[in-house]
Amino acid sequence: RCGYYVEKKKRFCRMVVAAGKRFCGEHA
C-alpha cells in the first residue's frame, strides 16, 4: 500500500499500489 503521509489528513495514504511500487498513482 502507498506509504505517502497525507499532512492535511494527518495519516498515511494507504491506497493499494502496483507490485514493486511504494506509492499510489496520486503520490508517485
Rank of each mutant, 00 (worst) to 15 (best):
R1L: 15
R1K: 15
R1M: 14
R1G: 13
R1E: 10
R1D: 14
R1I: 14
C2P: 00
C2I: 10
C2K: 01
C2S: 00
C2H: 00
C2T: 01
C2R: 02
G3L: 09
G3V: 12
G3P: 08
G3F: 08
G3I: 06
G3A: 08
Y4V: 07
Y4M: 02
Y4A: 10
Y4C: 01
Y4D: 07
Y4P: 01
Y4N: 00
Y4W: 04
Y5V: 07
Y5F: 15
Y5M: 04
Y5Q: 05
Y5H: 02
Y5L: 11
V6T: 10
V6D: 12
V6H: 07
V6N: 07
V6L: 11
V6G: 02
V6Y: 12
E7W: 01
E7H: 03
E7K: 02
E7R: 04
E7V: 05
E7S: 04
E7N: 08
E7C: 07
E7F: 05
E7P: 02
K8Y: 10
K8A: 13
K8N: 10
K8D: 12
K8G: 14
K9H: 15
K9C: 13
K9R: 08
K10V: 05
K10Y: 10
K10I: 04
K10G: 08
K10P: 01
K10N: 11
R11V: 13
R11A: 09
R11I: 13
R11S: 12
R11Y: 12
R11P: 03
F12T: 04
F12Y: 13
F12S: 07
M15E: 10
M15P: 00
M15H: 09
V16S: 05
V16D: 07
V17C: 13
V17T: 14
V17L: 09
V17Q: 04
V17R: 03
A18N: 04
A18R: 04
A18I: 03
A18S: 11
A18L: 13
A18F: 06
A19I: 04
A19L: 09
A19N: 05
A19R: 07
A19T: 08
G20Y: 03
G20I: 14
G20V: 12
G20Q: 02
K21H: 06
K21E: 13
K21W: 03
K21Y: 05
K21P: 00
K21V: 07
K21S: 09
K21D: 08
R22W: 10
R22P: 13
R22L: 10
R22Y: 08
R22S: 14
R22Q: 06
R22E: 12
F23G: 01
F23M: 05
F23Y: 03
C24P: 00
C24A: 00
C24W: 12
C24Q: 00
C24S: 01
C24L: 04
G25A: 07
G25L: 11
G25I: 10
G25D: 10
G25V: 09
G25M: 09
G25P: 10
G25H: 06
G25T: 09
G25Q: 06
E26C: 11
E26L: 08
E26T: 04
E26S: 06
E26A: 10
E26P: 08
E26G: 11
E26D: 08
H27A: 05
H27D: 00
H27G: 00
H27P: 03
A28S: 10
